[in-house]
Design a protein around this nucleic acid. Structure first.
Length: 748
DNA sequence: GAGAATTGTCTTTTT
DNA sequence: GACAATTCTC
């Protein structure tokens, strides 16, 4: 057995040296189900990776017998890498991936047993949208009486309860739900017709397979002697069932998580999974990891007191042997613009005065719209920044278009893809003709691409004009051609050929849209990704494989790997992201903006206790990302959705005991780290002498002087008096809008 | 079928 | 206020 390591003792010694006692126990306990309650910063990932290594190196397990599940592909990738580094041993056969990718894998191997064609497409949110709209049209439900997204949400919830359309119909309590049930049924029929599964289907079909085909289930149950799950607090019901079924035989499942960091209830995560783990599995051992290696005492205590307000949680007390550190800063500012200015002032200051690299600082906010001001402020000052988690690469239109071509090549029955590209670039195949063809295909039970090909010969089909039929035929021949080339072309060249042959690149080159070049670049990036994928693929599977198989594997990868790792290493940039995006990360300096009632906690969570508790956990997650210093900002009035409103400070601010907090207020005369010049100095004087700069009226054309921005010319004035917003073209830094009473402008 | 006008939406997000 | 999605108009 070539994966064995000759001598396990050095490895064991190393474990004892590098892990604290509870961590060591969590890595080496293998007698039964294990729940590791790992507080923030307690070395959770470490435990999982070392445990995998331990199982292979000491327990002599084949990688093949281990199943490790994570929530994101990024986490999966990092984990594999880390185990690689520890073991320096082949991990071939190790199943490590997300729930969705592992379920897809099982279904491709064994889905046949429950009637699933292994070539199925995976539909993402956009594809689902197209399918649901079609289903609604079929059922005569207009998008006005029910929003497609709302119906989809209902369906997804039903699926998470494992309710098939029939049961959903039975349980329907009113006319609306009865109709929703009909749409659900039709939607499922459409997916089946297109040989497609949506994300929820991947999970529930895998569960169905395991439950109803014991002979299939058994092989997996026997195979996976050890199962490891990360972020267990975020599992939903089908995921729980999936694990429970797979763990049946060996009963050795190790779940790692932190109920205090459960922040995805709104998308189906069931916190009860982690709270009731002991009930779900027999003879459970619980290990708590309570030593935090990340944050100072003040940060930890503040976060701990905050989250303590929540009911129904596993009790645990995090501790650290680090020093107290600085208190948490709380800053109150007049509006969201000064908030961005203030935070960026701090960032610049830390950068210049303390030589803190930008990459060691992060700004978190509750909603994505808040990011804009920070982004603008960064641009104005030339501070490099990295906006995390906006539009995913594979969500871009041009990429989805190319993907649709590829998918149709693999799965000729995929109507959603067909519909997307049949007239893109323009082929004079309008919506009506396409609809007729789709009806024809459904009627004849033909894959849509086959229908496009044969409709030319269909003499009885009078609804479609012969010329149009010819065009459909022409379209289908493209795919025939590509199919014949899959034997000779490499994966990237195949995709390139597709993009060129179908006229897509020509279309982009010809039009005058300034975005087109960027689109072309994105497509090239996509082809590069295909190239890299092929390289990896060839390394793992050395025997020659038809390109069509690689394409299928690549699409699978793309469908499940939503966004490429946006946090590039070695690049020094300020990190901007939502609090949700922050989970699992850490930064020496953390700013959390928008600590106001209605924003954080968000207005949509104010009327439910559970929702508020989730917001509180989110705040806990945010604060515990900080290693050295955490500053929370809130504003008096905030402009949201076009209107400006007065706000109240977030309740979370009051829930942190005073002794861990210092109010950083502008009237504090002593200059401190959190009391930068420029804008802040304006605040200082604000309380004291009322200089005439407050009353002064500026007009466009006035020459002015600013304490830190220097000389400039007024371009425009909005409003009156101290609150007026004055736009000035500064000599040094260019155009900028300042609020008169803080900017302390003087006429020259 | 393309471009203009209007309407509606505005939490978090992975798969 | 910003943006996307839909509907209207030619």
């Amino acid at each position: 057995m070539n994966f064995q390591i000759e001598n396990a003792t050095p490895f064991l010694n190393r474990l004892e040296k590098e892990l604290n006692p509870p961590q060591f126990q969590a890595v080496t306990y293998t007698d039964g189900p294990l729940l590791v309650l790992a507080g923030a910063g307690s070395g959770k990932t470490r435990v999982i990776t070392y445990r995998i290594a331990y199982l292979i190196a000491v327990k002599r397990l084949a990688p093949w017998n281990i199943l490790a599940v994570t929530f994101t592909n990024k986490a999966a990738g990092e984990m594999k890498e880390r185990v690689d580094v520890i073991l320096r041993h082949s991990l071939r056969g190790l199943w490590l991936g997300t729930f969705h990718s592992l379920c897809a894998r099982i279904l491709r191997y064994d889905g046949k047993a429950i009637g699933i064609d292994p070539r199925f497409s995976i539909y993402d949110t956009t594809d689902q949208g197209a399918a649901i709209k079609r289903a609604m049209a079929v059922c005569n439900v207009s998008p006005k009486e029910a929003k497609p997204a709302a119906i989809l949400a209902m369906i997804s919830k039903a699926k998470n309860r494992l309710e098939w359309p029939e049961q959903f119909e039975e349980n329907a309590r009113d006319e609306y739900e009865v109709r929703a049930a009909r749409v659900y049924k039709t939607y499922q029929a459409i997916l089946r017709e297109n040989n497609a599964l949506d994300f929820d289907d991947l999970l529930i079909e895998a569960v169905r397979l395991l439950l109803h085909k014991p002979e299939v289930g058994e092989t997996y149950q026997k195979r996976f002697q050890h199962i490891l799950v990360d972020e267990y607090q975020d599992t939903n019901h089908p995921q729980y069932l999936f694990l429970r079924e797979l763990a049946k035989h060996h009963n050795r499942i190790c779940a790692v998580g932190d109920d205090d960091q459960s922040i995805y209830r709104w998308r189906g995560a069931d916190i009860r999974n982690i709270l009731e783990f002991e009930r779900d599995f027999s003879n459970v051992k619980i290990i708590r990891l309570e030593q935090n290696y990340r944050s100072t005492r003040n940060i930890l205590a503040a976060a701990g007191h905050l989250v303590q307000q929540n009911s129904g949680r596993h009790k645990k007390t995090l501790w650290t042997d680090k020093e107290d550190g600085e208190k948490l800063g709380i800053v109150r500012l007049p509006d969201e613009i000064s908030e961005a200015i203030w935070i960026l002032n701090e960032v610049s200051r830390l950068y210049t005065e303390k030589s803190t690299p930008y990459g060691r600082m992060a700004v978190f906010y509750r909603t994505n719209v808040q990011s804009r001001l920070f982004e603008e402020e960064c641009i104005k000052r030339g501070v490099p920044y990295r906006l995390i988690g906006n539009i995913a690469f594979y969500e871009r239109k041009e990429i989805k278009d190319v993907l649709a071509y590829c998918r149709l090549l693999i799965n000729p029955a995929d109507m959603v893809s067909f519909q997307r590209i049949v007239n893109l670039p323009k082929r004079k195949l309008g919506a009506k003709a396409v609809q007729c063809l789709m009806d024809y295909a459904s009627l004849m039970k033909l894959p849509i691409l086959k229908a496009a090909k044969t409709i030319r010969e269909e003499k009885h089909e009078a609804t479609i004009h012969p010329t149009t039929r010819e065009r459909f035929y022409l379209f289908s021949t493209l795919f025939q051609k590509w199919h014949s080339q899959t034997k000779t072309l490499s994966l990237p060249t195949l995709i390139e050929t597709i993009v060129n042959d179908c006229g897509y690149s020509a279309m982009l080159e010809e039009d005058n849209d300034p975005q087109s070049q960027a689109r072309l670049d994105n497509i090239h990036e996509f082809i590069t990704a295909a190239m890299q994928f092929e390289k990896r693929f060839d390394a793992e599977i050395p025997s020659p494989v038809d390109t069509i198989v690689k394409l299928a594997a690549f699409l699978e990868n793309v469908a499940l790997v939503s966004q490429i790792d946006q946090l590039q290493e070695g690049e020094d940039a300020l990190i901007l992201m939502t609090l949700h995006g922050a989970k699992g990360l850490e930064f020496p300096y953390v700013f959390i903006a928008g600590m106001e009632e209605g924003l954080f906690p968000h207005s949509k969570s104010l009327d439910s206790k559970e929702a508020i508790e989730e917001e509180r956990r989110l705040c806990y997650v945010g604060i515990t990302r900080g290693q050295m210093r955490v500053v929370l900002t809130h504003v008096e009035s905030r402009r949201l959705y076009g209107r400006s409103e007065w706000t109240r400070p977030s309740r979370f601010l009051q829930e942190i005991p005073d002794r861990f907090v210092e109010e950083l207020c502008w009237s504090d005369a002593k200059p401190s780290l959190y009391h930068p010049p420029g804008v802040m100095e304006a605040f200082v004087s604000f309380g004291g002498d009322s200089g005439d700069w407050r009353k002064e009226q500026f007009e466009p054309g006035d020459m002015v002087n600013h304490r830190s921005f220097g000389f400039g010319v007024v371009l425009g004035v909005e409003g009156e008096g101290g609150r007026a917003r004055v736009t000035v073209d500064f000599q040094e830094i260019g155009k900028k809008t300042v609020i008169q009473e803080f900017a302390k402008l003087t006429k020259v």
